[in-house]
Amino acid sequence: MDLFSPKKGADIILARFKDPASLLHAAEKVRETGYSKFDCHSPFPIHGMDQAMGLKRSPVGYVVGCMGATGLVSAMVFMWWTSAVDYPLVISGKPFFSWQAYIPVAFAITILLSAFGAVLGMLGFNKLPRLHHPLFNSEQFSAVSDNGFFVSIEGEDKKYDEAQTSKFLESIGGTNIEVIKDL
C-alpha cells in the first residue's frame, strides 16, 4: 500500500509555467518528446488537457459495469433462493418466483454496487488514499492551489535524466526548475 510507506528513491522534476495555455502546450511537447510518467497541475481544470497529455479514457466504466451486473444477478438469485427454494411462502397468491416483485430491489442493489464500483474504482485507479506525495516537499508547489501551473516528470520514466530533462523543461518555457528528492 502506498498509504504509509511510499516508494522511496525516485526523484521528480518540477517546472512552473505562466498560464493555462502554456501549460497545455508544454503538456503536448512533453508527450511528443516521449515522456509517459508525467503530470500537469493547475488550480482549475483546463479544457483539452486530457488530449494534450494523451490520457486514455478512464477504465472506471468497466468496473462500474461489472459491479452493476454482479448486483443485478446476485440480487435476483438471492431473492429466488430465499423465496422459492429455502423458505417458500405463498404471498397474496402469487407464484414463489415472482420476478416482478424482485425488480425494485434488484434495481436498487444494481445501483448500489455500481456506485461502490465507481467510487472505489476511482480511488483505486488514482492510487488513493495516499497521505503523502514527494511533490509536497517543494516550497513553490503550494502555489498550485492559487496561481501556479506545473509540469512534473517522474524519475521512474524511461527517458528521465536529471540534467537533460531539466534542460528540456527549460527549453519549452518552464521556469523555477526544481529537482525534488523523495525524503
Binding site: 397474496s92 416482478q100 425488480i103
Partner: peptide, 9 residues
C-alpha cells in the same frame, strides 16, 4: 404502472 397493478391484483 404495471408493478402496482400486478401487486394489488
Amino acid at each position: 404502472q404495471y408493478f402496482l397493478i400486478w401487486y394489488a391484483n
